[in-house]
């Protein structure tokens, strides 16, 4: 039962994380470009983006932690998954992608977004560099989410041999 609850929270947090990732990439970034052009960007950068980023990075952390618990206590074990051993390789590939994505959120996206949004001091040149780094890290995560989700759903014991065997 504990594992089911863990997996339930993993999926809830994952939906929140990836949902906000898609919101940033498909809605906010293109919308912000238009909002800057007509002088209405402040509403987004001041009232929406900081709150969305808070939910985004916390959901990322919860998704990874509950995923790690499920990997360790589930059928494969974290060691077999992260060393891509045998039948654990598909979920291990998904776990590696999720781990890279978590790194991107906390190390590349959040610190650089703080500069872009003016939450920390930065020169205009620093802000431009930070915006590009955060953008590419966010786009990398959007790209990785596609195979990550495939391996997340196909890497469970019920499907592994049918899909990869």
């Amino acid at each position: 039962m504990e594992l089911v609850i863990d997996r339930w929270i993993h999926v809830l947090a994952g939906v929140t994380w990836i949902g906000l990732l898609y919101y940033f990439n498909f809605i906010q970034v293109p919308g912000l470009g238009k909002a800057k052009a007509d002088g209405t960007a402040a509403g987004i950068t001041k009232h929406i983006a900081p709150n969305a980023l808070l939910w985004f990075r916390m959901a990322a952390a919860v998704t990874w932690l509950t995923g790690a618990v499920y990997l360790e206590r589930g059928s494969f074990g974290m060691h077999a998954a992260f060393t891509l051993s045998g039948a654990a390789a598909p979920i291990g590939i998904g776990a590696w992608m999720g781990t890279i994505m978590l790194f991107n959120v906390w190390v590349l996206i959040w610190p650089n977004q703080k500069k872009v949004l003016g939450l920390v001091e930065a020169s205009d040149e620093d802000k431009a560099k930070a915006a590009r780094t955060a953008f590419l890290a966010s786009r990398t995560n959007t790209m990785l989410s596609i195979p990550m989700l495939f391996f997340m759903i196909s890497g469970t014991p019920a499907h592994t041999m049918g899909v990869f065997g």
Binding site: R139, P147, F164
Partner: peptide, 30 residues
């Protein structure tokens, strides 16, 4: 040009990665 600069390029790159890693996973599962 960086494919990640467009949404379409990002999605296509993700699908290509999925196919590549599918065959990697198949080889690892044996």
């Amino acid at each position: 040009m960086n494919p990640l600069d467009s949404i379409a390029g990002t999605i296509i790159a993700g699908v290509v990665l999925t196919v590549v890693f599918y065959y990697v996973a198949r080889a690892l599962v044996g």
